[in-house]
């Protein structure tokens, strides 16, 4: 089971939904890892979507686990990419070509949804046409407030900034523009006193 119920939090923290089929001439679906399961569920709810769908899928550590089943959904366009970064030019082109009424479905990790959401918003897609569903890892994309570097897939609190090496604690404060949560130095007031990292939500 790839669903996780996030506890209630502060108002800047995104709240993810559940994908539902919507009427529309075109459907853009962006997923990573276990997000594939949400797309399979979506297609099951309304198989007619897929003939008008463009699927961008980044399997990451799930490898081949879902690709065959996703392909069999018969999307009009089906792309499997090696990384989110590699898929970005394709995503941007698709968004810039989009007509009114495009429906966007984002599913998988928070980092994937946040970044793809940012692309969609910047391309002028209205919020009301974007749906999300979290699946899979609860790791976070974190911005270090000190050096501004992004560390992807952070699964413990605290963690070490991949750029400046400071020990950062994981806040729930979230920026849509950075598509990241905020990491802040944990031992600023007591240098060297860094608690043992704990897995998020454990």
């Amino acid at each position: 089971m790839s669903k996780f119920q996030f506890p209630e939090s502060i108002k800047s923290r995104p709240v993810w939904g559940t994908l539902e089929p919507r009427a529309g001439k075109a459907h853009l679906m962006v997923a990573d890892s276990e997000g594939a399961e949400a797309l399979l569920d979506l297609a099951q709810a309304d198989a007619t979507l897929m003939a008008r769908a463009h699927v961008i899928y980044i399997p990451r550590e799930t490898g081949e686990s879902y690709t065959v089943r996703l392909k069999e959904l018969g999307a009009a366009q089906f792309y499997v990419g090696p990384s989110y970064e590699a898929a970005v030019p394709r995503l941007r082109r698709t968004l810039s070509d989009a007509h009114m009424g495009l429906q966007v479905y984002l599913t998988g990790t928070e980092g994937l949804m946040g970044q793809a959401m940012r692309e969609a918003i910047e391309a002028g897609i209205p919020h009301s046409a974007i749906q999300t569903e979290h699946r899979g890892s609860i790791a976070r994309r974190m911005q270090c407030v000190h050096c501004k570097g992004i560390t992807d897939d952070v699964i413990t609190d605290p963690f070490v900034c991949a750029h400046c090496g400071l020990n950062l604690f994981v806040r729930d404060h979230y920026s849509r523009r950075h598509a990241a949560y905020q990491g802040v130095c944990i031992d600023a007031e007591d240098p060297g006193n860094v608690p043992e990292p704990v897995r998020l939500y454990s």
């Binding site: 502060i10 108002k11 800047s12 501004k148 404060h173 920026s175 849509r176 950075h178 905020q182």
Partner: peptide, 22 residues
């Protein structure tokens, strides 16, 4: 608080970390 992080947020989002007041 960080403008660089909070820029683009709405009134409730940039005040999100304030305890109790919400």
């Amino acid at each position: 608080w960080s403008l660089d992080f909070d820029i683009g947020m709405n009134f409730f989002e940039w005040h999100a970390p304030v305890p109790k007041a919400h």
